[in-house]
Amino acid sequence: MRPNVRRTDPRLQAITETIERLIPGAAPANMTVYVIEQLADDHQNEWSGPPDGLAEKIFTALYGRPETGVELSPLAQAEEAKRHRDLGTEVAVLNGAHAALTKADWYPARSGDLVHIHYEQAGDFAAFGETYLIDDVGGGLFSMQLLAHNSPLMPDELEGSIGCFAAEAADDPLYEAWFEAGPHRLTIIRDGRPVHMGSAR
């Protein structure tokens, strides 16, 4: 798998989306870009790759290499592998994330656990965090309710951006946040002590 690249840079996203829209309605995971140089002697040179591969080359020529070293969530890693048609890596990432969660010594979540999710700055959006409370709602199900956040967004901008991992009743309330936000963004507190500390700074 290629090294992780910060995909939140709006310039890189704009270039990628422009290339993906060259064929309206096409699924980006199924697209390949071909660039062909036709030579006089009926020979040709060519380059081919996925839309995000071409976008990265254009971005690098304009702005330098995209920032590297930013950890991606398991879902983002799996989507990256899928875009590169790497089924083995896609499956390994998802299975590895599942095992990392379900085999943790603090798993499963318990009533009273606090879950804090940190989001890095992305483009014009400042870094912020959300804190959730896990509660037993009976029948082997748990809720995950948003307690607080420090997003600078105005109330009319919050819809869909804050509290997206809240759950009324789930058998595993951490699963979605673990895969979509990523374990590196999660800090889980049990009985006043951290049992999982993500690596996001």
Results as ranks from 00 to 15, higher is better:
residue 132 Y to L: 12
residue 47 W to F: 09
residue 107 Y to W: 15
residue 174 L to V: 15
residue 128 F to R: 15
residue 189 I to M: 12
residue 75 L to A: 08
residue 83 R to I: 04
residue 78 A to S: 13
residue 194 P to M: 14
residue 78 A to G: 03
residue 53 G to Q: 11
residue 49 G to F: 00
residue 143 S to T: 11
residue 30 N to Q: 14
residue 171 D to S: 09
residue 32 T to E: 10
residue 34 Y to D: 15
residue 12 L to Y: 00
residue 122 A to N: 08
residue 100 A to N: 10
residue 17 E to M: 05
residue 8 T to C: 09
residue 157 E to P: 01
residue 166 A to M: 11
residue 199 S to A: 15
residue 182 G to Y: 13
residue 69 G to H: 10
residue 45 N to Q: 13
residue 170 A to E: 14
residue 76 A to D: 13
residue 94 L to R: 15
residue 138 G to I: 10
residue 181 A to M: 11
residue 88 G to F: 12
residue 20 E to H: 03
residue 160 G to A: 08
residue 171 D to A: 07
residue 145 Q to F: 00
residue 44 Q to V: 04
residue 146 L to E: 02
residue 72 L to E: 06
residue 187 T to A: 12
residue 104 A to R: 10
residue 168 E to G: 04
residue 43 H to Y: 04
residue 102 T to S: 06
residue 99 A to S: 12
residue 89 T to C: 00
residue 48 S to H: 02
residue 51 P to G: 07
residue 21 R to Q: 09
residue 57 K to L: 12
residue 76 A to C: 07
residue 175 Y to V: 02
residue 143 S to C: 08
residue 105 D to C: 01
residue 97 A to R: 07
residue 167 A to S: 13
residue 150 N to G: 09
residue 118 H to G: 12
residue 201 R to I: 00
residue 33 V to N: 04
residue 126 A to Q: 14
residue 156 D to R: 12
residue 170 A to M: 05
residue 138 G to S: 08
